[in-house]
């Protein structure tokens, strides 16, 4: 039982670290604000959540101590990360940050012009 939970905890924390690493690579590599935002708001969210889940399970299964604050932290990150991503990209769009040159279409521009 302890061995299984140790494997699970190790897997969760490693997965979170790797996801965070890949999302930071994505922030370096992707071409414009919006695509970078995809990487930052998604991969980082799941990365942080799996690290926190691993920490929660470690203290629960190995140390025998249930810490509900970590669970609340998971819920808060889960709820606020997409909103933050939305607000950053919205602010970028309304300050006329250009899209990547290979972008195909931009229906919001037409809608703004029509007003």
């Amino acid at each position: 039982m302890i061995v299984i939970s140790k494997i699970l905890i190790g897997y969760l924390i490693l997965q979170g670290a790797i996801l965070s690493l890949i999302s930071s690579i994505g922030i370096l590599r992707l071409p414009d604000v919006y695509t970078r935002n995809h990487a930052a708001s998604k991969a980082a969210t799941l990365g942080v959540i799996s690290i926190m889940l691993g920490v929660f399970l470690y203290f629960w299964l190995i140390e025998g101590h249930v810490n509900t604050q970590v669970l609340l932290g998971i819920v808060f990150v889960f709820l606020t990360a997409p909103v933050a991503g939305h607000l950053i990209s919205r602010a970028a769009y309304h300050t006329n940050t250009p899209l990547w040159k290979n972008s195909v279409q931009d229906e919001l521009k037409q809608a703004k012009k029509g007003k």
Partner: peptide, 23 residues
């Protein structure tokens, strides 16, 4: 959440950036 992570990872890891972003 899990599916979107997989798809974003695929884009980041792939050697060429050949996606077509847009709104």
């Amino acid at each position: 959440l899990i599916l979107s992570n997989l798809s974003v990872l695929k884009v980041i890891i792939s050697p060429k950036l050949n996606m077509k972003p847009g709104i």
